[in-house]
Design a binder for these strands. Structure first.
Lengths: 196, 196
DNA sequence: CTTGTGTCAGAATACGCGTTCCGGCAGAGT
DNA sequence: ACTCTGCCGGAACGCGTATTCTGACACAAG
């Protein structure tokens, strides 16, 4: 008897993600959300109960659609340094395909805009950064050319994570992917020089 | 005949800076501003005309109070690499003295929270980043151990700037200055290894 | 065709915040 | 002591937005 729903909670979160990502949390009103997602207020509130819950639901969607394709290969097998080089290549490709200057990284944006005043969002951000860190750490572990001591490896992985987030931030204010590629190349050159 | 004013536009901007820095632009209401600065709404509006103008006035104050003491020595004379090492040492000291986890860098925060939707703020951010970049570039120029080609030097200076901004971001989610020092040391180690 | 369920669009509500406005008063000059 | 200037505290206004509510409607089942 009921009408067939035109959306699923997942597809709603996906549409909302695009909006929050480009517009930020505060600047994205419910009116905009309704218009851009094509789902009525009623639909949004029955699916998620509020704006913030919908926002939180965007994090796993972002991970699935954006982070995983770029990051997952890093934890694969093979040369560790090559895996990290590949990561930054895919990162710039991703930024490029989104368009430059672009919205940067959804999570990095959240970490400065929302996380400081919201523990739940801060937790999502911390989780994301930890994922990056462990991925880089396992890649460094596989790197054959050097045997880094464990604490140093962890610190190095964090440094790579910090730079990765910085590169996303830079992608918001440049219109040339070549610039990003150059930044990444410089950093990777430093890294490679040290490991070999 | 008039009452002696209890504040100057500069001291008002200084107090406002502290609030915007810790609380962000959106989350800092005029009520909070009035309470924390000790200046009445009337005083704020006659001095600056509105919230955003006051916010913009905070940028030069931030530069004077925070950026200059940390950055200016970089453009001095002497060994270039040592100047950059000194910069990161002072950066971490500054973050430490503010308290950890802290509010990060006022300008980096502005770049993700406000700049995307406000050209005037974006210009202030770009100006700040350019200042960092040229400072690092002149330091690299003074570095005696290597003769970097000019384009590479500029790219390297930008990479250092990106990492510096990333480190400030990291200072918002860690409570140990030792962690920051470690991140900086790892990065500087990479840099030094490459230049020598 | 009728019925009933769940969705949709938009109005109504409640609230927060930037801005403006107004009486009261503190203090320097005479 | 008196006056007069201009600043202060706080109320008032207008706007924007998250949330709730309501009546109309679309569609599948009988």
């Amino acid at each position: 008897m009921p009408r067939k729903p035109s959306h699923t909670p997942e597809s709603l979160a996906d549409s909302a993600l695009a909006q929050f990502w480009y517009g930020g949390y505060e600047a994205t009103s419910m009116d905009i959300l309704v218009k851009k997602t094509g789902v009525s207020r009623h639909g949004i509130y029955t699916d998620y109960g509020g704006k913030k819950a919908l926002y939180l639901a965007c994090f796993p969607r972002y991970h699935q659609h954006v982070v995983s394709p770029v990051l997952d290969p890093v934890t694969g097998s093979g040369d560790g340094m090559a895996a990290i080089v590949g990561y930054f290549g895919r990162l710039v490709e991703m930024a490029e395909s989104i368009g430059l200057p672009g919205p940067g990284c959804f999570v990095v944006n959240a970490s400065t805009e929302v996380a400081p005043h919201d523990p739940e969002v801060a937790a999502k951000v911390a989780e994301h950064n930890a994922r990056l860190e462990t991925a880089f750490s396992t890649a460094l572990q596989r790197e054959q050319s050097t045997r880094l001591p464990m604490p140093h490896r962890k610190a190095l992985a964090r440094t790579i994570m910090i730079f990765s987030n910085g590169l996303w931030t830079a992608s918001r204010s440049t219109d040339k992917s070549e610039t990003l590629r150059e930044h990444a190349a410089v950093f990777l050159d430093l890294l490679e020089y040290r490991l070999k």
